[in-house]
């Protein structure tokens, strides 16, 4: 188990505050920054939850969670930052380029990386973690 004041719980709390901030901005009628707060907040919550799940002193699974969550945020940020697709815009893998990039980073990277990392480091970092 992670200790009382650990990096994962701080990340999780910061993420929750950002998500709450995004909702409060929308409730107050201000939309501009809300999606960025939501994207950053959701990713931090998931990073904190993932690191809490991994537990302390499990470097490989911890790294996998950090990479997966980093890619998740990168995908969401690309979706927010890039120009929305147009009728005759370029396609990538059969989808508008920005959509394909978002799905590759937020979907494909974690979906491949995390299960394989879990299986690969299971004996070293998961088994016995039965607190």
């Amino acid at each position: 188990m992670s200790s009382r004041l650990s990096a994962p719980i701080l990340l999780l709390t910061l993420g929750l505050l950002l998500v709450a901030g995004a909702y409060l901005l929308l409730l107050a009628g201000s939309e501009a920054a809300a999606p960025w707060l939501m994207a950053a907040g959701s990713t931090l919550v998931l990073t904190g939850l993932g690191l809490l799940g991994v537990g302390p002193r499990r470097p490989y699974l911890g790294a996998a969670v950090l990479i997966a969550c980093g890619c998740t945020f990168a995908g969401l940020a690309i979706g927010l930052a890039m120009t929305p697709p147009t009728a005759d815009g370029p396609l990538l893998l059969g989808l508008p380029r920005v959509t394909a990039l978002l799905l590759l980073l937020t979907g494909a990277v974690p979906v491949v990386l995390l299960p394989i990392a879990y299986g690969a480091f299971f004996r070293r970092e998961v088994l016995g973690d039965d607190e």
Partner: peptide, 27 residues
Amino acid sequence: QRVDPTFLGPWGTRGAMVALSFFFVFA
């Protein structure tokens, strides 16, 4: 895309906040 470029855009027709809210709640 010819009819509605937002449909297959990164956030669909309802926009980024609805999509991200789904993402947070279901994750």
